[in-house]
Amino acid sequence: MILASLVTEPVGVAHYLIVGAVLFIAGIVCMATKRNLLGVLMGVELVLNGANVNFIAIGSPYLRGDAASVGLDGQLMALFVIVLAAAEAAVALAIALNFYNTVHTIDVDAADQLRG
């Protein structure tokens, strides 16, 4: 039905959005199921990339020629995301190491001191 028509059509923004969606969901599922803290971090990276794909798709001059396109800002947003992802990864890794060094396990479920 709709998905089938996608295959035949020329590649448009929708396709990119689909890819972005798949990446996003993979990230979510990864974060929700991985018990390894770093697995969760990887899930975060995936989510961010999913978002990046969407930004680029929306801002790309080729995919959308119409005036509604966000133009350069799409790409710039992607750039910001990349840089911030780097920063975030650094901090996350630091916390992960700290957590590992104090609790001696990388299992996320061990960190439930804040339960109700």
């Binding site: 709709i2 998905l3 020329p10 929708a14 959005l17 689909i18 969606a21 996003f24 969901i25 995919l63």
Partner: peptide, 22 residues
């Protein structure tokens, strides 16, 4: 469920369909 939602949103907006690279 999330995929269905996002996909239907992505596909639903006509302007995002088919302009293709010029």
């Amino acid at each position: 469920a999330l995929l269905v939602l996002l996909a239907s949103a992505a596909v639903g907006v006509p302007t995002w369909r088919g302009s293709g690279p010029k």
